[in-house]
């Protein structure tokens, strides 16, 4: 943007007393901005606040709360609700959480490793057919993932792999966008001079990759890892289609199952609704903690895809 920066020095006509006036004028927009932010926070926090409050109620006040849906009911029943949740159906909820961890970590780590390797390969090697392969990859970014679910189900059921953890983990390894992100980042973030220097010093292709390139790729790796862990953890369609044994469900499908049961029960399912509420609360905690603690990585990393 050098074009825009050139007039900076040339047309500087600002007088000294202009600055305070500007500051005063700037105060009102600032208040408007803050009001806007307050409105945003209220909106985005509303469901979470409701969930937090609702988890402390008992079934009666969940549906007919003396102080309304957005305030605490009579008594504090969170611990008792948690106990009921973990005891439900021989502790199946904890299994669901465990399954979610397994699928999200295996799928997320696996797809990240594949994306790092492929992205680096695309960015730093000029092999024959590279441009064609990369065009195909970009085309794949545009294929909606859910359109693949039923075809993949049919294919895996031929191999008798449906209703196993593999049916969820293996398709989650496919992350074309992750490869795209890694390629963009590696092209800029790993200077060729450094790689050449490492090779001149006698390091082989793979040693150069592990010792020179990998540390430089760290912000992109954390971002791709987080994105793919979230995508796998939050996925509903794929495990819903693949799994029929409820002990293999991840927590999203498990809670969906409870909701289906409660909805079908019309009234008799009221105690299930309490479990759904408190189960929802517990299920969102791990990812929120992950995002809060890894802030400094993903906040910058999320810009990668839009840089080119």
């Amino acid at each position: 943007m050098t074009v825009l920066t050139t007039p900076a020095g040339a047309s500087s006509t600002r007088t000294p007393d202009e600055a305070p006036r500007r500051q005063r004028a700037a105060r009102r927009p600032k208040m408007l901005s803050n009001l806007f932010l307050v409105a945003l926070i209220l909106y985005f926090a509303l469901p979470l606040w409701w969930l937090l409050v609702a988890s402390t109620k008992d079934t009666t006040s969940l549906f007919a709360s003396p102080h309304g849906a957005l305030w605490f009911g009579d008594g504090f029943h969170l611990v008792e609700n948690l106990r009921a949740l973990f005891a439900y159906d021989n502790g199946i909820y904890l299994r669901w959480m465990g399954n979610s961890f397994l699928y999200a970590l295996a799928g997320g780590l696996g797809s990240t490793v594949l994306a790092v390797l492929a992205g680096y390969g695309f960015a730093k090697f000029h092999f024959k057919g590279r441009n064609l392969a990369f065009s195909i990859l970009l085309g794949a970014v545009m294929v909606p993932a859910t359109a693949l679910v039923i075809p993949t189900f049919v294919l895996l059921s031929e191999m008798e792999l449906t209703n196993t953890p593999w049916a969820v983990i293996l398709p989650s390894l496919l992350n074309p966008f992750g490869v795209y992100l890694m390629r963009v980042y590696a092209a800029e973030g790993v200077p060729d001079e450094l790689l050449d220097a490492a090779r001149v010093d006698g390091a082989g292709t793979f040693r150069t990759f592990f010792q020179v390139a990998l540390p430089l790729l760290r912000p992109a790796i954390v971002t791709v890892l987080l994105l793919s862990v979230v995508a796998t953890w939050n996925n509903y369609f794929l495990p819903l289609a693949m799994l029929s044994d409820s002990t293999l469900f991840p927590v999203t499908v498990g809670i969906g199952l409870l909701q289906g049961l409660a909805g079908a029960n019309n009234g008799g399912g009221e105690s299930l609704w309490m479990l759904i509420v408190v189960g929802s609360l517990v299920s969102i905690i791990p990812l929120i903690i992950a995002f809060l603690s890894l802030q400094k990585y993903w906040q910058g990393g999320l810009a990668i895809g839009s840089l080119k």
Binding site: L48, W233, N234, Y236, S283, L287
Partner: peptide
């Protein structure tokens, strides 16, 4: 934060 929350929830 809502991004980190499953669509189901």
């Amino acid at each position: 934060v809502p991004y980190a929350i499953p669509a189901v929830i």
